[in-house]
Design a protein around this nucleic acid. Sequence first.
RNA 1: GCCGCGUUCGUCUAGUGGCCUAGGACGCCUCCCUCUCACGGAGGAAAUCAUGGGUUCAAAUCCCAUACGCGGUACCA
Length: 504
Amino acid sequence: MRTRFPPSPTGFLHVGGLRTALYNFLLARKNGGKFIFRIEDTDQKRAVAGAVENLIETLKWAGLSYDEGPDVGGQYGPYIQSERTNLYKKYAEKLVEMGAAYPCFCTAERLDQMRKEQEQHKMAPKYDRHCLHLSKDEIEKLMTAKTPFVLRQRIPDSGGAHGGSVMWKDLIRSAVTFKYETIDDQVLLKSDGFPTYHLANVVDDHLMEITHVVRGEEWLSSTPKHILLYKVFGWKIPEFGHLPLLLNKDRSKLSKRQGDVAVEDYRRKGYLPEAVINFIALLGWHPGGDGVAKGMATQEIFTLEELIQKFSLDKVHKAGAVFDIEKLDWVNWQWRRKKFEEQPGEKSEKLLGLCSEFLPQEWLADKEFLKRCLITIGEKAIKNPQEAPEHLGFYFKKSFEIAPELIANPKMKVDMEIAKKAVAAVAESLESFDNFTDQEALKIRTMEVIQKLQLKNGQVLWPTRVALTGEAFSPGVFEVLWALGKEESMRRLKAVIAKCKMLL
RNA sequence: GCCGCGUUCGUCUAGUGGCCUAGGACGCCUCCCUCUCACGGAGGAAAUCAUGGGUUCAAAUCCCAUACGCGGUACCA
């Protein structure tokens, strides 16, 4: 078995493209076959510099290794279509000899005009074969006059020797049929000498001995043209499988307008390759729930290795799937946690390793302090290391404004008077307390204060926490005291007490 | 318009004629944990299986029609 992924180097790798690549990869790996990476750059106008390198880099990031490709070589190369143009020309000429293709000299204007008329008559736009009826002399004359021309595929007539239609058994959609009269005389070779997708694709897939063509649903209606080409060449027709599309929330084809579609966007935002692969694999495919009893959970998290083991094309769906970023976020969280837990080492060291690249240089000066801070935001740092600076900011501020309405929070039943009393009492108690390295001891000590004050936990702890952090949301009081240490904790508490006095 | 493909909770899905009073996951809601956020735990709402006809003792599952959605309709891939 040989599968392939042949993107166009028109920029970034689309998440839909990644999924197509993934399924081809899984299919090949599952069956001990080869996975081939090929560049389809026959459209010169759309080629983007650096796009090939970008595709290679992104596939590498995702962990989809290929056995043959432009950068790794292989015995069927070259793997870049623009380096194979003479090949396509040769086969195109063969088609002309066999009467399966013919030159067309029609101008863009005539074609436009023709289509407009067809549309007015509510007909499907289709080449009218104007140039098919050109005599040998006429063709020769136009050729010697160097009139630009293309080569068109000659679709057989209905009811001819080949019957009236082309049918194939799609790996995903079962039997699909197209009548000859609905198939256009597709351009095979462009006037610039480059082939179109239809020719290049068939020639390459044959020459590279591709056995399974698994691609997006957008190719479904051009498949009959490809099959016809295989037939006239007398080549073995590969298996075809057409994948459902990835959709926006409104069920239109996944597009840039409604969110990120480039794999690199997700990479940049901190999504793990394992998570993206896991999530995308399940968009249009599911291994099935064999032996899963009613009420039992089905597996949601898969490693690449598990995907390879469980993958099969007959479990691929026919309908499109909406790309739901919220589920991706959840899958990403599961993966971050899993990888963090599996990684050996001290938790604080691991957190530091995870976040340090996103933190300001100054914060790295006192590593022990930083590690304590990281411990207090724990899960949040694991969930998204890139956001760690936001959660840690208050630790590194020398001073901050505390809004009166933040510290005096009616929901917590705290007014300015209670706040002052609470923070002052905690500060006083802690002044003569030295065991700041023990969170449990800090808690016991503070609870005694609360009891003495005859206040609710929240009435004391809320203003204390706000006094220490200046934030509505933050780690808890005891964690912050522990991380900050006595000196800085006392400084912050006293500063707020002074401010409360002024406000009263 | 024409051709083709599709249709199970909001979303991803399990389901291949009786195990389905349709299961799981995300999200949402409630409660618990708790000084806040997050994490974690326990529950809940949520699909007349697109609709209408068949076939069958029995249909989400098979057949037909309709509706709706999507894709293609380029000298783009």
